[in-house]
Design a binder for these strands. Structure first.
Length: 474
RNA sequence: GGCGACGUAGCCAAGUGGUUAAGGCGGGGGUCUGCAAAACCCCUAUGCACCGGUUCGAAUCCGGUCGUCGCCUCCA
C-alpha cells in the first residue's frame, strides 16, 4: 500500500508503527456551519479510515474541536452570546452534518477548552527547553531555534520572510514567531496560566491533543492543503521540540481544496456552500460520489452538474443492490473476485477513489448483465455491498409486499422503510392504475402515472410488479 | 516576488514509457415494454494546451511558450 506523504513529496510504502494505526485529522473551529470544503476533507479521511480497517488495521482516530479561538470570540461578540454557547451550537451542527454524510465518528473528539492542562504542560516544556518565551502575558514559539522549521511546507525561513513583510511583531523576538498562548483582553474568556490569564494559540491544541491521545509519533495526520502552512508546520515544530522525538508524524496526508468557480471556497471570500444547503438538493451518496470522483489531492470544483451526475450514479448503484437473484444462488454464478482485486489495487495506490469507483460501476454493470441473463449474482452483490461500504455509500431500495400487488418501494433513507411510510393516497392510485392496465385502458392508466409523477412518485412496470420510486433524495 | 499543482472527449475524471486512452454524466442508435422507466448492447478523443527534444516507441520523460489554480494571512 502506497500513500503520498506531503513531508517527502513522494508516494511511500505505508508502514504504520503497529497494527493499530494512529490517525489524527484536524477538526473544526465551530463558529459557523460546516461547508463543502469540510465535507470533502472529512469524507476523504473517512474513506481512508474505512479502507485501512478493510485492510485489517485497527485505527485509532482522533479529531480535535477547537472550541476557543479568536474567530469564535469575534462572532459571539457580534451575536451577543457567550463564546461557549456559540461553539456548542456549531459543534452540534457539525456532528449533524457528519452523521448525515455517513461519516463515521472519530474515537475521540477532544475539545481545546477541556485540554488546557495538557496545553499548558506542553507550553511550559517548550519554555524550559528554550523553544519558547513569555512576553507581555503571551508565550511565543522561537522559530529560529528550530533548524527543521519549514520542512513540511518545503520552504526556508528566509524565503518566507522575503515574500511578505512580517506580521505583528510588537513583542515578538522574531516576526515569524507564533503564539502558543495569548494573553486575554478584558471581557474575553480566559484560563489561568503561569503567564497570566489567557487562552491557547491556534496551533498548540493539536499538538497537545495528539500527543496526549496518540503518543509522540502519529502514523497519519490529515487535513486540507491549506493547513500545511502555517498550521501543520507549527505543529511539527511544537511537537518535535517538546518531545525530542522525530518524526511527530510518519505520513502527512493533505486533501485538495474545493473551488467554487474561479476561487477557492473559503471563509474570507465568503463564497461558501454549507453542507446543509447542499443536502437540501443532493443525497449524501451523491455528495460522496461527487467528492470521491476526483483524486483526494486534486482540487475539486463544486458544480451542480457534477452533483447531478453523481446523483444518477448513486441511483444506479442503489438499483443494482435492490435487484433480487431469482436463481437462488444455484447454477452459474458471477465471479466478483476480479473486481474486488481491482478495487484493492486502486485503493492501495494512494487511495485512488476515482478508479475504485470505476470498478464499482463495472461491477454494477456485470451484475445487471448477470441478472438479465439468469446468472446468479448473490455473491457478487455481497462484494458490491462491502466495497461500496468502504466508500461510505448506503442508499437502499426496499421491497414491500401488499395484498393486491407486489410493490417495491425505493427510498434513500438509511433507516428501515415500511409501507406505513408510503403516503396513504398513493396506494389506491397505484391499485386503480393496475386495474386500468389490466383492462388495457392505457390512456387512463397513463394519466394516473403522470399524476403520481407530479407528486414525486415514479412508477416503473416490470413483468412481476410495479416499482414505486420516490423522487426525493432522502 | 517565492514555493507548488494542474491543462485528457459536450461536462466531470482516471491513466504517467509500449496491444483498441478507464469510469461517470450527457448525447445518438437498438433490444425489451401497450407506451414509458429501468436494465442491457452498439456508437460518441486517429488523440491527451501549444512548440521543440530524448527514445525503436510518449498523453506519460526533458526544455520552452501560453493558460488556470493553490499556498506564502483566518481557512478542511
Amino acid at each position: 500500500m502506497k500513500v503520498y506523504n506531503t513531508l517527502s513529496g513522494q508516494k511511500e510504502e505505508f508502514a504504520p508503527q503497529s497494527d493499530e494505526v494512529k490517525m489524527y485529522v484536524c477538526g473544526v473551529t465551530p463558529y459557523d456551519d460546516a461547508h463543502i470544503g469540510h465535507a470533502m476533507s472529512y469524507i476523504v479521511f473517512d474513506v481512508i479510515r474505512r479502507y485501512l480497517q478493510f485492510r485489517g488495521y485497527k485505527v485509532k482516530y482522533v479529531q480535535n474541536v477547537t472550541d476557543i479561538d479568536d474567530k469564535i470570540i469575534d462572532r459571539a461578540g457580534k451575536l451577543g452570546i457567550p463564546p461557549a454557547e456559540l461553539a456548542e451550537k456549531y459543534t452540534t451542527s457539525y456532528f449533524e452534518d457528519m452523521d448525515a454524510l455517513n461519516i463515521e465518528r472519530a474515537d475521540i473528539y477532544p475539545r481545546a477548552t477541556e485540554e488546557i492542562p495538557k496545553i499548558i504542560e506542553v507550553i511550559q516544556g517548550l519554555i524550559d527547553k528554550g523553544y519558547a518565551y513569555p512576553a507581555g502575558g503571551s508565550v511565543y514559539f522561537r522559530v529560529r531555534n528550530d533548524p527543521d522549521y519549514g520542512k513540511l511546507a518545503h520552504r526556508s525561513l528566509d524565503s518566507m520572510m522575503a515574500g511578505e513583510c512580517a506580521v505583528g511583531g510588537e513583542e515578538k523576538e522574531d516576526p515569524m514567531d507564533f503564539a502558543l498562548w495569548k494573553a486575554s483582553k478584558p471581557g474575553e474568556p480566559y484560563w489561568e496560566s503561569p503567564w497570566g490569564e489567557g487562552r491557547p494559540g491556534w496551533h498548540i491544541e493539536c499538538s497537545a491533543m495528539s500527543l496526549k491521545y496518540l503518543g509522540d509519533t502519529l502514523d497519519i495526520h490529515g487535513g486540507g492543503q491549506d493547513l500545511v502552512f502555517p498550521h501543520h508546520e507549527n505543529e511539527i515544530a511544537q511537537s518535535e521540540s517538546f518531545t525530542g522525538v522525530k518524526p511527530f508524524v510518519k505520513y502527512w496526508l493533505h486533501n485538495g481544496l474545493v473551488q467554487l468557480g474561479e476561487d477557492k471556497m473559503s471563509k474570507s471570500l465568503g463564497n461558501l456552500i454549507t453542507i446543509k444547503q447542499a443536502l437540501e438538493k443532493y443525497s449524501p451518496d451523491a455528495m460522496r460520489i461527487f467528492i470521491l470522483s476526483s483524486h483526494y489531492r486534486s482540487p475539486l470544483t463544486y458544480s451542480e452538474e457534477g452533483l447531478e451526475a453523481a446523483e444518477r450514479g448513486a441511483e444506479r448503484i442503489a438499483r443494482v443492490i435492490s435487484r433480487d437473484d431469482p436463481t437462488g444462488g444455484v447454477g452459474e454464478a458471477l465471479n466478483a473476485e476480479p473486481y474486488q482485486k481491482q478495487f484493492i489495487e486502486a485503493m492501495d495506490d494512494d487511495f485512488n477513489t476515482p478508479q475504485a469507483l470505476a470498478v464499482l460501476f463495472d461491477l454494477a454493470r456485470g451484475i445487471n448483465q448477470a441478472a438479465d441473463s439468469g446468472i446468479s449474482f448473490q455473491d457478487a452483490k455481497g462484494v458490491l455491498l462491502s466495497l461500496r461500504a468502504i466508500l461510505g455509500l448506503r442508499r437502499r431500495d426496499v421491497v414491500i409486499e401488499v395484498p393486491t400487488a407486489r410493490l417495491t418501494i425505493t427510498t434513500y433513507a438509511p433507516t428501515v422503510v415500511t409501507e406505513a411510510q408510503l403516503p396513504p393516497e398513493i396506494k389506491p392510485l397505484v391499485e386503480e392504475r393496475e386495474r386500468l392496465r389490466k383492462a388495457k385502458k392505457w390512456q387512463e392508466a397513463d394519466k394516473i402515472r403522470a399524476k403520481l409523477d407530479e407528486m414525486g412518485i415514479i412508477l416503473e412496470d416490470t413483468p412481476e410488479s410495479t416499482i414505486i420510486r420516490w423522487k426525493r433524495k432522502r
